[in-house]
Design a protein around this nucleic acid. Structure first.
Lengths: 173, 173
DNA sequence: TCGTACTTTCAGTCATTTTTGAAATACCTT
DNA sequence: AAGGTATTTCAAAAATGACTGAAAGTACGA
């Protein structure tokens, strides 16, 4: 496979993955393109490569900057801005966790806490089942949340080292 | 808050969460409804509660069964089928991990492995940058994949116990 | 075998989200 | 401050994805 073909394939795959996880396809593609570009790119180069409009490129670049995954670069003596992605994938992962935790996990936990506190006959089967489900969910989401908090703070080596130990212990059992 | 209001709120929140993570809103809502129902429900009850069509209810119920999150029940002397959700949230989480790993993580890993093997001048900056990015990504996705594999096999107590230990060790540092 | 009750399918419609294109704005240079 | 270039915004168009409704399919009991 040639480089261009491989790039194309990678960008497509990354876009598809993104759209399966609630991230707009183009945003994921722009990110993929910047990830594999050794130099920063101008908006025009991105438009050209991905065949998208200026407005679309601009919107998604801003969204990526908002997510903390892409930065602007001003080159001396040039008007035009250049964009580049954070290349350390562990950092990218952490950044994504931070944003999604803030945007989605936190609001859901809030709702779970609210609905746990319903008034009503605690002997009613419906009430009992509801509260039990919600509490279980709240526990597990809470534990997942704690875990992600660790992941955000951890450095990559420590984090995967610790997971590896978990794994080995389990295998021995 | 009354039970009905709380149920409604929970169903809405679960639907919104799902749609942010690439799971269709109605499917998540049907799942939420079944999660908090102590008794199994017929298709008609689900249609009625969520205000959706028969076709929609049927399609999403089948999808949930396909994901292993919901089962059918035949009641003696009754033609109609009743549906109920797996209530153990840890099992639900494991099931979701199994499916998404199969549907999304595996295909992406396959693409990453393919595009790593490009032909071309290894001294070319573009080739080098590309291979490096892809390899990094492949590593981290691979490690995440391994971790999820552990999670699938683990029982809840052991799993979160082990994570808790990780956490404590990190805090001490 | 027929009629009934229920389930499944899928083409067409509808709703939502994404993308475009063009206008407005900002910024630099002379 | 005028003219040129780059960026941002946003209403409308296009694309995507979800939902409906009607028809076909299936299972059951009489």
């Amino acid at each position: 496979m040639q480089l261009d073909e491989a790039k194309e394939k990678f960008i497509q795959a990354w876009g598809a993955l993104g759209s399966n996880w609630g991230i707009n396809r183009t945003m994921a593609q722009v990110h993929a393109l910047l990830l594999i570009s050794p130099e920063s790119l101008s908006a025009d180069e991105i438009m050209e490569t991905l065949n998208i409009s200026r407005g679309n490129a601009n919107m998604n670049l801003r969204a990526l900057i908002d997510w903390g995954l892409v930065s602007k670069e001003h080159r001396a003596g040039e008007r035009r801005e250049y964009f580049f992605a954070e290349k350390d994938i562990w950092q990218v992962a952490q950044q994504v966790i931070i944003e999604r935790r803030k945007r989605e996990l936190k609001p859901v936990m809030k709702v779970l806490e609210e609905v746990k506190e319903i008034s009503g006959d605690k002997d009613d089967q419906n009430v009992k089942a509801f509260i039990e489900s919600v509490e279980n969910l709240h526990n597990i989401v809470g534990q997942a949340d704690k875990f992600l908090e660790i992941a955000i703070k951890a450095d990559r080596g420590w984090f995967f080292g610790a997971l590896l130990k978990m794994f080995q212990r389990q295998v021995k059992k």
